Computed example of a mutant assay.
Amino acid sequence: MTTSIIAFGGRPLTIKDVVEIANGKAQVALSDAPEFVEKVDAGVRFLNELLEQDGVIYGVTTGYGDSCTVSVPENLVNELPIHLTRFHGCGLGDTFDEQETRAILSTRLSSLAQGYSGVSWELLERLVVMLNENMLPLIPKEGSVGASGDLTPLSYIAGALIGERDVRFRDKVMNSAEAFELLGMPVHKLRPKEGLAIMNGTAVMT
């Protein structure tokens, strides 16, 4: 039974917060503090303006890593984050348990809720839904951790958001698209940079 609601974006997340969320003793929400709202809006606005100006944005209009000098045509910008999640979805071994997965999700949400990644409200809200509904991506324990971010394990969160990975939901393992459908929600459509924003972090290592 939940005993509290922990709001993201209004104050720093504490270890105690993560423990409560991981143990299912707290639900989560996004802060309605004006400064937080403006931070997220500003990040989205800045990214949109750069795209309209045909700006060069790493991982959005360019490739990744050593391919950063390769330009991505405008008509493929929206496909790039999808391919990034698929490319890194090569984890192995056992999956993290529910407690560990909830801790990973909460830590990643905390980072994205800082407002510096240019992610949309829709993405932040989907992560809130996944935590509150206990829709937990199956994340393999073996893969790249700390190598320019926890790219492989975090790709399973991104893949779950777009309906291409399995989740634990209502005591069953099912495709995430089916789980979202049971909640009356479509899968998330990644905006430019959102695949990179989800994956290029250290939530699993943390």
Rank of each mutant, 00 (worst) to 15 (best):
A7Q: 14
V19A: 15
E20S: 13
E20L: 11
N23A: 07
G24M: 08
A26P: 08
L30G: 08
A33M: 11
E35R: 13
E35Q: 11
D41G: 12
D41C: 12
A42N: 07
V44C: 02
N48L: 15
N48Q: 13
Q53L: 04
D54Y: 11
D54M: 15
Y58C: 11
G59K: 03
G59E: 04
D66S: 04
T69A: 14
V70A: 05
V72F: 14
P73Q: 14
V77P: 14
N78A: 12
E79F: 09
L80E: 14
T85W: 01
T85L: 11
C90N: 08
L92Q: 06
F96L: 00
T101H: 05
A103K: 01
I104A: 02
L105D: 06
S110C: 06
L112Y: 01
A113R: 07
G115Y: 06
G115A: 13
Y116R: 06
S117V: 10
G118A: 14
S120L: 05
W121T: 07
L124N: 09
V128M: 13
V129A: 03
V129W: 00
L136Q: 03
P137L: 02
E142K: 14
S148C: 10
S148Y: 15
L151P: 07
L151C: 07
L151W: 11
Y156L: 01
Y156S: 00
A160I: 03
G163V: 03
G163I: 09
V167T: 05
V167C: 11
R168Y: 10
D171F: 14
M174N: 15
N175G: 08
A177S: 02
E178R: 10
A179W: 13
F180P: 00
E181K: 12
L182D: 05
M185C: 04
V187A: 00
L190Y: 01
K193A: 00
N200G: 15
T202S: 11
T202E: 13
A203N: 02
M205A: 06
